[in-house]
């Protein structure tokens, strides 16, 4: 499992990508999907997921639909129109960041600054 610090900045793009690919999902489903896709290496904690979902909802990036399931309310989160645009820029930024990190890690020092 990766450290909380490493996951902190990547949770939002992961979430947006997942909702972009799979459509509306509920909280537990998101946790399980990420766990399965990452082969158990990324486990999203409830304490990270739900505050983020509600922040994105307040920003208008996500929208919800409540359904009654087995006597309880289940909220499905989906990308709004604004969220679809945000996903493209968030994923672009993450990819750029990953290639920069890779560059730093693989570049051998040639000259001393």
């Amino acid at each position: 499992m990766y450290s909380k610090e490493l996951l902190k900045g990547t949770l939002k793009p992961i979430l947006l990508k997942l909702l972009s690919d799979r459509g509306a999902m509920y909280g537990y489903e998101i946790v399980q999907a990420v766990k399965q896709m990452s082969l158990g290496k990324i486990v999203i904690k409830e304490g990270s997921l739900y505050p983020l979902l509600h922040a994105l909802l307040a920003e208008g990036i996500l929208e919800t639909e409540s359904r009654k399931v087995d006597g309880r309310t289940r909220k499905y989160y989906a990308l709004s129109k604004k969220g679809k645009t945000e996903t493209v820029s968030a994923l672009g930024e993450l990819e750029d960041f990953m290639s920069t990190i890779k560059l730093i890690l693989t570049t051998k020092p040639t000259t001393q600054l």
Binding site: G27, V31, Y50, H54
Partner: peptide, 12 residues
């Protein structure tokens, strides 16, 4: 809204 989310999460 968060109570509903967490309640469903616990149930799952």
């Amino acid at each position: 809204a968060v109570v509903d989310d967490m309640q469903d999460h616990f149930c799952c």
